[in-house]
Simulated assay, not measured.
Amino acid sequence: MSWLPPLREELRGIEPYGAPQLDVPVQLNVNENPYPPDADCAADIAGAVLAAATTLNRYPDREFRALRQGLSEYLAVESGVAVPWQQVWAANGSNEVMLQLLQAFGGPGRTAVSFAPTYSMYPEYARDTATGWVAGRRREDFGFDLEHAEALLGEHRPSVVLLPSPNNPTGTALPPEVVAPLCAMAAAMGGVVVIDEAYAEFRRDGVPSALELLAEHPNLVVTRTMSKAFALAGARLGYLAASQPIVDAIRVVRLPYHLSAVTQAVASAALRHAPSLLGKVAELRAERDRCVELLRGAGYAVADSDANFVLFGRFADRHAVWQGLLNRGVLIRETGPDGWLRVSVGTASEMAAFSTALADIRDNGVATPLLEGSQS
């Protein structure tokens, strides 16, 4: 009998997480910004990395003060909320930020809660930290059911509540009148509420950020990323804003020197070019809204989106639709509730290619919506 490693029982047979990485002309499956950094930004990043390279024999600043200061200044401009740099934390992508939160506040005998459909990595963070996992539900229109949420929190008394806003995969944002009472309820139980704002920069005008509630709720955590609007998916930099006790707790569980000198240099340089990196956000919002209008006009159900992606359906065989698009050189994501698909917002030409491919396979009887009409 061949030797097998002593893998934890709950990990046996599990496939690693990840969306398909396929070399096709139009890639609209992982919510990337389709516009790369401009030449000036790329040159500044290259210079910063070159400077960092001369000191790689030394460990980096494990508190990465300069980067946290830069993130603090960016949040003040983007949201109008002043967050001291000491209340900002960063890690290798918002994935590591989330894992650190559950390392600090989850664990054996504790529970994390979210509401489906939601980000598919959340239960994996819970599993990897031996945290119990409970998934509530959203309404049929993917809106948030506060009454159901309060009942679920009362039943399970979670130490961590994970709420993406805009939600992934639906794109729907949470109103403040939902966040505030959940923070108050979780605080009474000794828990934290994490509002995952990975797509915050894409939210529609008038949709507030949960950052506005930070001062009122010391158990609130707001997470962000530079992967999406900042067009830095390859840099792997996520961050959060929270009260000082929460940041101090995360500092206990973080690995030593978890952010390399190169990562710090890249992110700090990118922040100096925030206006140019975010320069296409308005265009991508407009492209998203055109996509929603086009899909609804074609009779598909479409979730309201404040993100850079659109969830649409419903299909009797969504995989056949996904495959049909892929056969025509367009890669989208087979995710979310059964019968739905998610398309990332790309350039105008990429969205035109998606529209043409979808119309083509519909003409061939594959992409006919299961139910005519729209859903908002």
Rank of each mutant, 00 (worst) to 15 (best):
P25Q: 11
A91L: 08
Y59Q: 13
I45G: 08
A42N: 02
N92A: 12
L102G: 01
A82P: 01
A91P: 05
P117E: 13
V77W: 01
G109P: 05
Q100V: 01
L99Q: 14
F64H: 15
L75M: 13
Q87W: 09
V26E: 09
V49K: 11
E78Q: 15
D38T: 11
S72E: 13
E73G: 12
Q86I: 04
L67P: 01
Y74C: 12
E15R: 10
L28Q: 09
A76L: 10
D23Q: 15
V97P: 04
G93D: 07
A90H: 01
S120P: 02
G70W: 08
P20E: 04
A43F: 04
W89P: 00
A48N: 06
Q87N: 15
E96F: 12
A112M: 15
V88K: 13
I14V: 09
N57G: 14
A48G: 12
I45M: 14
R62S: 12
L99G: 10
V88D: 12
S94N: 10
T118G: 05
P20R: 03
T118P: 04
D61V: 13
W89E: 07
F64L: 13
L71Y: 07
P37H: 02
P34N: 02
S72D: 11
V26D: 05
P25M: 05
G109W: 05
C41P: 02
R65N: 07
A43V: 04
I14T: 02
E63G: 03
G109V: 01
M98V: 02
P25K: 12
P117Q: 06
P60Q: 11
N57V: 10
I14S: 00
A66H: 11
E63T: 09
R110V: 02
A46T: 05
A82K: 11
V26Q: 00
F64P: 00
E63R: 14
A82M: 11
A48P: 03
G13V: 04
M121S: 01
V97E: 07
V26A: 06
I14Y: 00
T55K: 11
L99I: 06
E63K: 10
N31H: 09
T118N: 10
V83M: 02
